[in-house]
Amino acid sequence: MNLLEREMQYPISQQVPVSLKRKIRSTHVKENILAYVFLAPSLIFFGIFLLYPMMKSIYLSFHLTDPRGRIAAYVGWDNFHTLFVSNAFWKGLWVTGKFAFLTVPAGIVLGLIMAGLAHARLRGIRVFQFIFSLPLAVSVGTSSVIWMMLFHPTMGMFNYFLSLIHIAPVQWLTDPSWSLMSISLMTIWMNSGFNFIVLLSGLQNISEDIYDSAKIDGSGPIRTYIKLIIPLLSPTLFFLFIVSMINSLQSFGQIHILTQGGPAGSTEVLVYSIYKEAFVNYQFGTGSAISIVLFLIILLLTFVQFFVVEKRVHYQ
């Protein structure tokens, strides 16, 4: 039996010197420590601004608090029971669902149209790309003030255009039948910049050979876009749908500035109910209970999208 055959009889781990094993183990430990050092700032901020508030909300949801937010009494599940028997909560949940239904699909469709137009190789298209992405650079507060002037019943541009075609002016923000639609319209515009940029980047990742093959087969631009490009964009659309859904369920700023949840609660989504319970009525326990329920709803919808909708996503 030669030397090679003799060495092959023993496991490789026994052939490695002990000093080399220690050196490798020490290197792995140092790499792990270095990784945690680089992750430490993110983990600290995550713990302070996300994990701790979440744990605090769970704790407060089982208690009554005084106006200063201090614990007054332990009530167990009473806050949740009060919530689920409240008509205001179910109305807020219904308004939140309608708001998401009005804003998410329309925002994605508008983003698809703008991205398709801006992706064309036309002269001066860079100008339109800048214009389409401009809403992303405007804050919620600024957008709300701009649209408040547009919605003004006497001096607003929308009612002015309606008067040109002899249609009676609309009370955009004070009529319960129009208020949620008005907020949704403003939200669609406000989110259009982000949707446009994400979808345009998805279009730019599609090979030009696919467009050339479609032209050779005699497919028109609209048919190519609907039948070929949109399925190839399904990973981007899936990501955008999840992000848009979460953002719509967490919308607050434009509602607070434009309608304050009114008129008659027609725009009072769950996030605004949390604000009103905690910082207007000083019921931090009930507000925390609503926030926990909203978190569970978002978590459930996200899981449903991952386990159901993702099956229709075509990854290249």
Rank of each mutant, 00 (worst) to 15 (best):
L162D: 14
F196R: 14
L64A: 11
S179E: 02
M55T: 05
M181H: 12
F161I: 08
V85T: 07
F101D: 01
Q129A: 12
V304Y: 03
P41R: 10
V95H: 04
H256G: 08
D212E: 15
S177M: 13
F194P: 02
P67I: 09
I12T: 13
W147C: 07
V293F: 02
V145F: 14
V104I: 06
M55I: 11
V313D: 07
L64Q: 10
V145T: 08
P135R: 12
R123L: 07
F45C: 11
N87V: 04
K56R: 09
N195C: 09
W90K: 00
G156Y: 00
K227S: 14
Q316P: 15
Y36F: 12
M148Q: 15
I255A: 12
L43Q: 10
L300K: 09
T236V: 13
R223S: 15
I131G: 08
M186P: 11
W94F: 01
S244N: 15
G76W: 00
S179H: 06
S266C: 01
Q250E: 03
A278Q: 06
S201F: 08
I146G: 06
F80G: 01
S139I: 11
G107Y: 05
G141N: 05
L180W: 10
S61W: 01
S273W: 03
I33M: 06
E7Y: 14
I298T: 07
K91V: 03
N32T: 08
L240R: 12
I12H: 12
T65C: 02
L83W: 02
T224K: 15
L150I: 10
S291A: 11
A120P: 08
G124M: 04
R126W: 10
Q254W: 01
P176Q: 04
L228H: 15
F89M: 03
L3K: 13
F45I: 14
Y275R: 02
I197F: 09
L237K: 08
P169F: 01
